[in-house]
């Protein structure tokens, strides 16, 4: 996807016709399904995002509901150089989780610089790390990413610290929306510890 069509898909430039995938995505809130309390309280905004495969997804409906997940924030142009090491660390945890990955456990890595981190750029990054199914790199409209970041507490109440993006890349949120269990772990934790945390979420 080039830059223009990427921005179009986010509604930043006018579109001639609505994207068919948008209409599809709107149907996804299925009948009779209730929102978890975390979703009700607004912690899990159902914002539209784009995956590194260029697919449009809704954060809550498509990525969180009925799943056990871990998600973190990063940027391709990582100012402190730590993002690649944390990606590698999470990949080791992915390997330890084996065939549960992509079945009931999913990893999501969301960019903090959505304007420059297009799906194409995310795809290149993911390919560099041999990222396998069950792990998505995500971008979206800046205001949606901002809402997601803040609602998940990847924010600092001091505006100066908040403006330093490297202050938001050290931690991953993990949880099981069905059982309403939400915690956080350092992305620098030993991969075996990240993997064993998932035992807590389904017991």
């Amino acid at each position: 996807m080039d830059r223009r069509s990427f921005l179009s898909s986010l509604g930043l430039v006018p579109l001639v016709t609505a994207m068919p995938s948008e209409a599809k995505a709107q149907e996804k809130l299925s009948v009779g399904k209730s929102l978890s309390r975390a979703a009700q309280a607004g912690y899990l905004p159902n914002v539209p995002l784009l995956t590194h495969h260029g697919e449009r997804v809704l954060f809550y409906d498509d990525l969180i509901r009925d799943r056990t997940v871990l998600f973190n924030f990063f940027l391709v142009g990582c100012p402190d150089g730590l993002c690649p090491t944390t990606t590698a660390n999470l990949r080791d945890a992915y390997d330890l989780l084996g065939d549960r990955m992509g079945r009931d456990i999913f990893f999501y890595t969301i960019t903090l610089t959505p304007i420059v981190d297009t799906p194409k750029r995310l795809k290149e990054y993911a390919e560099n790390f041999s990222i396998k199914p069950g792990w998505l790199f995500l971008t979206g409209k800046p205001e949606d990413i901002e809402l997601l970041r803040r609602s998940q507490g990847f924010a600092d109440s001091d505006p100066e610290r908040d403006a330093d993006l490297s202050n938001h890349t050290g931690m991953a949120r993990y949880g099981n929306d069905n059982l309403e269990r939400w915690g956080a772990i350092s992305v620098r934790s030993k991969p075996s510890n990240i993997a064993s945390t998932f035992k807590w979420l389904t017991a």
Partner: peptide, 17 residues
């Protein structure tokens, strides 16, 4: 102190190992 969006002691968040 607070560092990297986490609460840390001597620069590091808790590590089980």
């Amino acid at each position: 102190e607070r560092s990297g969006g986490e609460w840390v002691v001597n620069g590091k968040p808790f590590n089980r190992d």
